[in-house]
Design a protein around this nucleic acid. Structure first.
Lengths: 218, 218
DNA sequence: GTTATAATCGAATCTGCATTAGATTATTTC
DNA sequence: GAAATAATCTAATGCAGATTCGATTATAAC
């Protein structure tokens, strides 16, 4: 029985952080609850005290990653003193540095999101509470997807504003933003903390690739 | 018993194509052999006549996707009559149009590659033939990864050449190519055949975002 | 310090697949 | 058309891993 010395009670936050790391290394389906639990010195069974099930844990990881990112970027969009160019530069920087500083979260945001769509409903005649819980999960998942769209719209709004005002060369705003976010998200796939360039440096580079298209002289 | 009317014997190629589709929709771990088999009107057991196991099938899907892409792009890199700019434009176009024409393959190339890394060795004292087979799989997988690097180098080479000759503004070639391929790969994630823009149109747009950074006047 | 609740554990379930085994049917070769 | 081989099937097998159960220990309230 010999309970482990009980370092300290583990909380939700720590589990989410550790789970992001495990997920980014093994992928949602391959990572076991046991793996995730081990990362915080727990057993698989104990995780169920903190999260209803594996899907709920995944959702929590992704929500945390998205909120983290939005919290960095949102404030920039409404700084009224700055030009569209200045704001966009700052937003790209925050996005990329955020990904580089938290590669696990960055990778999970790219690779594991579509595991959410495969969440399976409670099998046979499950307890009503389980059906309730699944409904709640679906609602929360939809909210997550809407929030993700909102994130994309932060970028669209700034680019759009620059185009409207004539500060930016006209581009297809949705496509431009998809291309930009594709490049940024991809950083989470290839970035290595011990690589040649820092997150800052990468952000500067990538910014310098996208801005000329907006600023070029006709 | 009533054997199905036996339309026609199914071949490797068809299975790979169907598997790419299933994988892109459900993900490697979630897609079952039964799902994939059903997509070509077979039973799961029958797939094992064509592929040693699920990992081998995944590898075959990814290899096919990569070869398809390389075959479109490689020839462009050595057309000596064309400037670096002209070649790069053509390469981006081929890449994106290829992804848009085969979204299943495009998505699989992005999302399922890292399932390859999780391939598990034969468990206990498996027959020597199984160990052999696993060795072969590892070798083939390594070759795949090298081939993928080679693909990236096709782009690097052209950009590098443009920079060397002064045709392009100096950029950090590896990072530039990562950003470009990130944007291109991402198309496979969001592109919908019934969307607002064709693959061609998207390629034109994205090209117009990356080229100014290379061509701008100091 | 007694009671209530929160965290944790070890040891079962329970199920969904991948994979194998052993026929059966098609197709080719001669 | 007989023999050999290819392609498929149905029906096990086996196992890994999510989830549940019941018990145990820590922590807080009072």
């Amino acid at each position: 029985m010999a309970r482990k010395p009980a370092d300290q009670s583990v909380n939700r936050e720590e589990i989410i952080t550790a789970a992001a790391d495990v997920l980014s290394r093994r992928g949602y389906e391959t990572a076991t609850m046991k793996d995730i639990a081990a990362a915080v010195n727990l057993t698989a069974a104990s995780l169920y005290h903190h999260f209803r099930n594996k899907d709920a844990l995944l959702l929590a990881v992704l929500e945390m990653g998205l909120e983290f990112t939005i919290n960095r970027i949102q404030p920039i969009t409404c700084q009224r003193g700055l030009s569209a160019e200045e704001r966009l530069r700052a937003m790209i920087r925050e996005h990329i540095v955020g990904v580089a500083d938290n590669p696990a979260v960055g990778a999970a945001m790219v690779f594991e999101i579509h595991a959410l769509s495969n969440a399976k409903p409670p099998t046979r005649r499950a307890k009503p509470e389980d059906l309730q819980a699944f409904e709640a999960f679906l609602t929360q998942r939809d909210a997550f997807f809407r929030r993700r769209d909102a994130f994309e719209h932060l970028f669209r709004a700034v680019v759009q504003e620059g185009v409207r005002s004539g500060e930016f060369h006209p581009v297809d705003v949705p496509i431009f933003v998809k291309a930009l976010l594709g490049a940024n998200n991809w950083v989470g796939v290839w970035y290595r903390p011990d690589g040649r360039l820092s997150g800052e440096a990468i952000a500067t580079e990538i910014t310098s690739y996208f801005l000329p298209a907006l600023l070029m002289r006709k």
